[in-house]
């Protein structure tokens, strides 16, 4: 390890400058340790910075009708937090195992940008914005623009993800389901997150996002448009057509975790399950 910088930066500015010079951020370390496992064995680990001392990346607050979640918030903390939308809590509680959730952070999950990242479908469905900081200042952008491909983001070399901003009270009904071979430590085969505003048994607004069925999270603007304005009973009778729309929207592949065919039928079934859950509360 050649750490020419302080591995424990005390300010965001110092951290961003170290990152620009090639230091890899270490938040919970749960992806870091796997990605650099070989290098760690041979003493070839790239230089790194521990983010833990950076107060700006901590905490959960409620500025005007939104909730701001610091990038270092852990999956364990988010699983039990009552200020954030339940959709996100539920998904965070599906990550890994209890001990893994105590270490794994929301910022790490986003920056890893895996199509199987469990926090991502809820963040897409809720319309999350990410806050990015650099020595030049802060900027906000929608998460769907931040994640540019499997494992890639638009983060620049001198930038860190500082927080996630979510609207609150925009939706009143949520659905989340993760399909995986066992409850703990199993990467998602397919997942669905849905956020809806339902008034008088009618869909006013609905957003949905599928995980693990494409190179990034799959959004469904056409299905959302088809659902909006419908009553729940109309939706229940439209399930067969909606399932076909799901199969056409997602882009699953065969890999060592599952097959495209399995993912396609399960994804369609998840939407059906969601509509039945909304329709028969």
């Amino acid at each position: 390890m050649v750490n020419s910088h302080n591995p424990y930066p005390a300010t965001l500015r110092e951290a961003c400058m170290a990152k620009q010079k090639g230091a890899v951020p270490y938040a919970g370390g749960t992806d870091f340790m796997i990605r650099h496992a070989k290098a760690l064995q041979t003493g070839q680990c790239p230089p790194f910075i521990f983010l833990n001392d950076l107060n700006e990346l901590q905490g959960i607050s409620n500025p005007d009708n939104t909730v701001r979640i610091g990038a270092l918030a852990t999956m364990a903390a988010l699983s039990v937090n009552k200020e954030i939308p339940g959709l996100l809590s539920q998904a965070c509680n599906c990550v890994g195992s209890p001990a893994l959730r105590s270490a794994a952070t929301l910022g790490g999950n986003i920056c890893t940008a895996s199509p199987a990242g469990d926090s991502l479908p809820p963040l897409y469905a809720l319309g999350a914005q990410v806050e990015i900081c650099s020595p030049a200042g802060r900027r906000l952008m929608p998460i769907r623009d931040f994640i540019s491909g499997p494992g890639t983001t638009t983060l620049q070399s001198d930038e860190l993800l500082s927080a996630v901003i979510l609207p609150v009270n925009e939706f009143n009904e949520f659905y989340h389901h993760k399909v995986s071979p066992r409850v703990a430590n199993a990467i998602t085969k397919v997942s669905l997150a849905v956020a809806a505003r339902i008034e008088n048994k009618r869909i006013k607004k609905i957003r949905m996002a599928f995980g693990s069925v494409g190179p990034t999270i799959i959004c469904c603007p056409q299905i959302e448009a088809a659902c909006t304005g419908s009553s729940l009973s109309e939706l229940l009778s439209a399930v067969p057509e909606l399932k076909i729309m799901v199969e056409k929207t997602i882009k699953p592949i065969d890999d060592h975790r599952s097959t495209a065919q399995y993912r396609r039928s399960i994804a369609a079934n998840l939407l059906a399950d969601c509509i039945e859950t909304f329709g028969n509360p």
């Binding site: 370390g29 749960t30 340790m33 796997i34 521990f50 833990n52 001990a99 270490a103």
Partner: peptide, 18 residues
């Protein structure tokens, strides 16, 4: 137990134990 909570010692660097 890290600050009292179960933690995976294979999945963290010594530096993170400071």
């Amino acid at each position: 137990l890290l600050d009292g909570h179960p933690a995976l010692s294979c999945l963290m660097l010594l530096g993170a134990a400071k």
